[in-house]
């Protein structure tokens, strides 16, 4: 058992070290990706001028803290596995990974984690600029909220990664699956609370959205970080339940899909 744990640690640390070194090579590109995640701050500018916010019982400060938190959550839950998996599948780059005693899933997951680690200084810099130029957006979360939000962000990333991974498996049948990523962006934009807090939607839409994983991917961790009133236990339970179900589906999708791999281009 100890040997197995040590081996997992060795694989994880080696993968993360190499992927982090690689991401450092691409730091300029990552800075641009970080900047491209400004949507929550743009939405903050729009919603802060809207009267709708008051009518649903949110204060200006609450909405500001929510969108600042959403900006941070979005930065650390970015997922692009469909694009890279499709490329690797079509170009045959998946072949060497399939011949090693480590499921390729972990390589893609580690590259995402390494990218997020590389983003930290850029996100810190952008938040500092925001606080400097928009002083009323400044807030420091309570330590408890910060820790809980960190865990929620990690779980939200895992769930989002699994959703994209499952759809990436369609490459085995259809070769091209990245277009689905565009399609998945629509429910993510509206149901996650990215373009508007879920409170502004009608009760019906909100009830439907809560049946999907999307509110837990952004709205829930953002509310935890901003200290808003939120069902902490319910939120974490939903993230864990979605994570478990998606993990089971991902294993099934992988096993079925990999049988169809034709090692194109290799």
């Amino acid at each position: 058992m100890t040997k197995k744990i040590f081996r997992i640690y060795r694989v994880a640390s080696s993968l993360l070290t190499a992927q982090y070194a690689l991401m450092i090579e691409y730091r300029a590109e990552i800075a641009l990706w970080a900047i491209s995640g400004l949507l929550p701050l743009i939405m903050l500018a729009l919603w802060s001028k809207s009267d709708v916010i008051g009518s649903v019982g949110l204060t200006s400060q609450e909405i500001t803290h929510y969108f600042v938190s959403a900006f941070i959550v979005r930065q650390f839950t970015a997922v692009w596995v469909m694009v890279s998996f499709e490329e690797d599948n079509i170009e045959g780059k998946l072949s060497p990974f399939l011949l090693q005693p480590l499921p390729p899933f972990w390589r893609y997951a580690s590259s995402h984690v390494a990218e997020q680690l590389t983003r930290i200084p850029f996100v810190f810099f952008m938040i500092s600029i925001l606080f400097l130029f928009v002083p009323n957006s400044f807030f420091i979360p309570k330590l408890k909220d910060f820790i809980l939000a960190g865990i929620a962000i990690f779980l939200a990333f895992c769930v989002r990664f699994l959703i994209h991974w499952i759809f990436a498996m369609l490459c085995f049948w259809n070769e091209r699956a990245a277009a689905i990523e565009r399609l998945l962006l629509i429910p993510y934009l509206f149901l996650s609370g990215l373009v508007a807090p879920l409170e502004v939607f009608s009760d019906g839409v909100r009830s439907i959205s809560m049946l999907t994983p999307y509110p837990y991917l952004l709205s829930f961790p953002s509310k935890v970080m901003s200290g808003a009133e939120v069902n902490i236990i319910g939120g974490f339970a939903a993230l864990l339940a979605w994570g478990f179900c998606l993990f089971v589906v991902s294993i099934f999708a992988w096993r079925q899909g990999v049988k169809r791999y034709s090692a194109m281009g290799a």
Partner: peptide, 28 residues
């Protein structure tokens, strides 16, 4: 092992040693 002359497994932007140590960990 499978070696393909027209394909590579080494990480393009890093020195080969980085890829070797990943492989070493993967193979235990």
């Amino acid at each position: 092992t499978l070696v393909m002359g027209q394909k590579q497994q080494l990480i393009w932007d890093l020195p080969p040693l980085d890829s070797f140590f990943v492989n070493a960990a993967v193979y235990g």
